[in-house]
Computed example of a mutant assay.
Amino acid sequence: MSKKRWLALLAVTVLFILSTTINLRAPATSSNWDELFSADDRKWVERTLREGDRKEKIVVLDVNGVIQDQDDTSFLFSSVGYRHRTFLSMLEYAAKDPDVEGIIIRVNSPGGGVVESAEIYDKIRSIQEEYFKKIYVSMGSMAASGGYYIAAPADKIFANTSTITGSLGVIMQSYNVSELAEQIGIQEQTIKSGEYKDIMSPTREMTEDERAILQSIIDDAYVEFVDVIVEGRGLPEEEVRNIADGRIYSGSQAVQLDLVDDIKSYEETVDALIEDLGLGNLQVIRYETSVGFNDLLQLSAQRLSMNQGDLLGLQQLVRQTNSPTLMYLYTK
């Protein structure tokens, strides 16, 4: 083993020992350290955006990026990203906090997974029904497909005139590389237990039966999307089906279609919620993801133990599956 590898192994060992020690002594950590590094299971901190005259507050939560349930630790390798489980726990925490009077969800997303979008929708509805807290949505530059799905149950939805929204519908995509494989001499060998086990295989044409099976699944998810808009916006089903053909809308067009309540900036949305609550000058806070000291140690260990190829994401790419996935997603 080279000297460089021995040094890397030694560094990983030291970091592992430090991480274990900190975990064992976490309860004794001072409050100052808690402010700098999250020591509990809550992977976020509260940051005050506006001071108020009383302890009651409204909370701002952000949905940035594609709505997918990925390993929350993966955010350490990128500066920005959506963390599904963390976002759901933020919603739950805000719901149970007696000082939180209202929630603003700032959506800047092209959508994402059908299941993940439904989980956010269900969480929002439960907060409204169980805790009777108002939830407003402020759309950023994009709140399309699943980004609109999670906005639909909100008490009010506001957008910018140039917000890209809509793209109401479901998509499932795959590639057919059979001709390319034939040209370069690649042949797939498949052993399967049933006729449809390799449905949407990228190395052959899709059959009509297979297309019908997948279309039925798409149709079921589409019906659910339509129902969410009908319930959330109080629109007739026929009208929703007419506008939910996959096209995108500007914020101004969405207001005309009653998909959005009004044109307001983020700051104006905050003001509107405070005014509608009628409780005076409430403080405004944002839940922001934090990096625990233990997370930093684990990240350093991972970086030292992986080769350069893995740091470029090749290991993650190999682990990904090509299985078809239902998406509420706006694709360009």
Rank of each mutant, 00 (worst) to 15 (best):
S2W: 02
K3L: 14
R5S: 11
W6T: 14
L7C: 03
L18D: 14
T21V: 14
T21L: 15
L24W: 11
A28Q: 13
T29V: 13
N32S: 13
N32D: 13
W33H: 10
W33A: 12
S38D: 07
D41V: 04
D41E: 10
K43N: 10
V45A: 08
V45E: 09
V45I: 08
E46Q: 09
R47H: 09
R54E: 11
K57S: 04
K57D: 00
K57A: 02
D62P: 01
G65S: 01
V66L: 07
T73F: 12
S74H: 03
S74L: 14
F75Q: 12
L76R: 14
F77L: 11
S79P: 05
G81V: 09
F87N: 02
S89C: 01
A95I: 04
D99T: 06
G102S: 00
I104W: 03
I105Y: 01
I105Q: 00
I105F: 01
R106G: 03
G112C: 08
G113W: 11
G113H: 13
A118M: 15
S126P: 00
I127W: 05
Q128K: 12
F132Q: 09
F132W: 03
K134C: 00
I135W: 00
Y136D: 02
M139V: 05
A144H: 06
S145R: 05
G146T: 08
I150N: 00
A151K: 02
A151T: 04
A152G: 08
A152E: 06
A154Y: 04
D155V: 05
K156P: 08
T161P: 09
S167E: 11
M172G: 01
Y175A: 10
N176Y: 07
N176K: 08
G185Y: 03
I186N: 09
I186C: 11
Q187V: 14
E188D: 12
I191N: 14
I191M: 15
K192Y: 12
E195D: 13
K197S: 15
D198Q: 02
P202T: 12
T203C: 10
R204E: 06
R204I: 03
L214R: 07
I218G: 03
D220R: 14
D220F: 07
A221G: 07
A221E: 09
Y222C: 05
E224A: 13
F225G: 02
V228M: 15
V230F: 08
E238V: 12
E239L: 11
E239Q: 15
R241S: 01
R241F: 05
N242H: 12
I243G: 02
D245E: 08
G246R: 02
I248C: 09
I248Y: 15
G251E: 08
Q253S: 08
L257E: 11
L259C: 06
V260W: 03
D261A: 00
K264N: 09
E267Y: 07
E267F: 04
E268Y: 06
D271E: 14
A272Q: 07
I274W: 06
I274D: 05
I274N: 00
E275I: 01
D276S: 15
G278D: 07
G278H: 09
L279T: 08
G280N: 02
V291W: 00
G292Q: 10
Q302N: 12
N307G: 11
G309T: 10
D310A: 14
L311N: 01
G313N: 03
G313S: 01
L314G: 03
Q316W: 06
N322Q: 13
S323W: 07
P324S: 06
T325Q: 15
Y328H: 07
T331I: 06
K332A: 06
